[in-house]
Amino acid sequence: MYVAVKGGERAINNAHAWLAEERRGDTSVTELSIAQIREQLALAVNRVMAEGSLFDPDLAALAIKQARGDLIEAIFLIRAYRTTLPRFGHSNPVDTAEMACDRRISATFKDLPGGQVLGPTFDYTHRLLDFKLAAEGAPEAAPERDPTPGPVPHVAEFLNREGLIEDAPRDDTPPPDLTREPLSLPADRALRLQALARADEGFTLSMAYSTQRGYGRTHAFVGELRIGTVPVELEIPELGFAIEIGEIVVTECETVNQFKGSKTEPPQFTRGYGLVFGQTERKAISMSLVDRALRWEELGEEFTGAPAQDAEFVLYHADNIQATGFLEHIKLPHYVDFQSELELVRKLRREAAAEALPEAAE
């Protein structure tokens, strides 16, 4: 319960003005442009697109600028804007085997058809500050790159030829739309993957890390990690066929996990899967590990009580916008609530003091 505060509207307007001033910073420093954020802070832009469920680098860059670099606030802005957009239809599932790969690596097979494509990665850097970046000057010429053209078969299919890995689970049932329908349990895998795709990266990373430390019985290998561009197609009823309406950049990760087998299934490897907008490989790997941990029931495994195995725990705490709203609402006025709690504590203290008097007299 909130109560009105005299002069509140004026104070709020002044707070907004001060925020705009702080956002701009020192006016003697050149203002960041949307293009600069989009091109030079691309990984932040990718995260905002992924967790905001909207692929638009320019809007994500605008949100980052407006939020002063607070990525969760930027994600909130993107999600809020997304709700205002009309929906014209549903695109066909993207075919990642046709991806034009900028990066494609495998930790399970050294010799891949087409070779290992390292791509743009921090993996081999020394994590030392590069003070040359602090010096202003002409930028170095970017090296020429030639994305690996599709089709690029998935690594797991090499194992599948020998029956050493489970077939990729398929279900043609249209999945529910998490952006339009609230999450409900029990959640099937399609719904879980939707929730994980836009889950907070830090939370997903923590859950994935817990499985590697023994909380989830998931010892995984990265079967394949790929980053690249895929076309998006939309069925046009008037034409009777699909047309390409654009391209998006995605990161896909498929992990290979041990499986001892069951009464109906022989020992084989199983899969964990992650697919995220943009170059967001830490999130995609984390997503695939958590996906595999959540599959314990359908694979006939034992529930060990690990947090990453508990779908309710994972899915209801993964969304950073929902978490932020619930967390930050406690800084809003709760004067009436607190006064009632304060009066209750005072009453309990009076009663405790009254009971203590006879005992002291004895």
Score class of each variant (00 low, 15 high):
Q279W: 03
G246R: 10
V276C: 14
E244C: 14
E235N: 05
V256D: 02
A284I: 10
G274R: 05
P267R: 10
E247G: 13
Y273S: 02
I236C: 04
F259G: 09
F259D: 05
T270Q: 07
Q258F: 11
E238Y: 03
T251I: 04
V256H: 10
T255D: 02
K283E: 09
I285P: 00
K260N: 10
K283R: 14
G274Q: 11
A242I: 02
T264W: 00
E254S: 06
C253N: 02
I245G: 11
V276K: 01
I236V: 13
C253E: 01
P237H: 05
K283M: 15
V256L: 14
F259Y: 15
F269C: 09
N257T: 03
V249N: 11
V250N: 05
E244K: 14
G278S: 10
P266M: 08
E265R: 11
G272W: 03
R271H: 07
N257W: 01
R282Y: 00
G246W: 08
S286V: 11
G240T: 08
A284C: 10
E265G: 00
E238N: 09
L239P: 04
E254F: 02
G246F: 11
E244A: 15
Q279P: 00
G272N: 07
I236H: 00
G246L: 13
G246V: 15
R282K: 11
L239Q: 06
F241R: 14
S288D: 06
G272A: 09
L275I: 09
P266A: 13
Q268T: 04
G272Y: 06
N257K: 01
T255P: 00
E265D: 03
F241I: 11
V249H: 07
V249K: 15
E254P: 00
V249T: 15
F277W: 09
E252K: 10
F241L: 13
M287A: 12
S262A: 12
I243Y: 00
L289S: 09
E254R: 10
A242R: 05
I248F: 06
R282S: 12
L275N: 04
Q279A: 15
I285H: 01
L275M: 12
T270H: 04
T255C: 05
P266I: 08
E281V: 05
F269V: 02
L289M: 13
I245V: 15
S286R: 07
F241C: 06
G246H: 10
G240W: 06
V290C: 08
G272V: 05
C253D: 02
V256M: 12
K263M: 12
R282L: 10
A242S: 15
Y273C: 05
Q258P: 00
S288I: 12
C253Q: 05
Q258Y: 07
L234P: 00
E254M: 14
E247I: 12
R271G: 08
P267N: 09
R271N: 06
T251G: 06
F277Q: 02
S262V: 07
E235M: 10
E238D: 13
V250Q: 07
M287W: 03
R271D: 03
K283N: 11
G278T: 03
G246D: 12
F259L: 11
I248A: 08
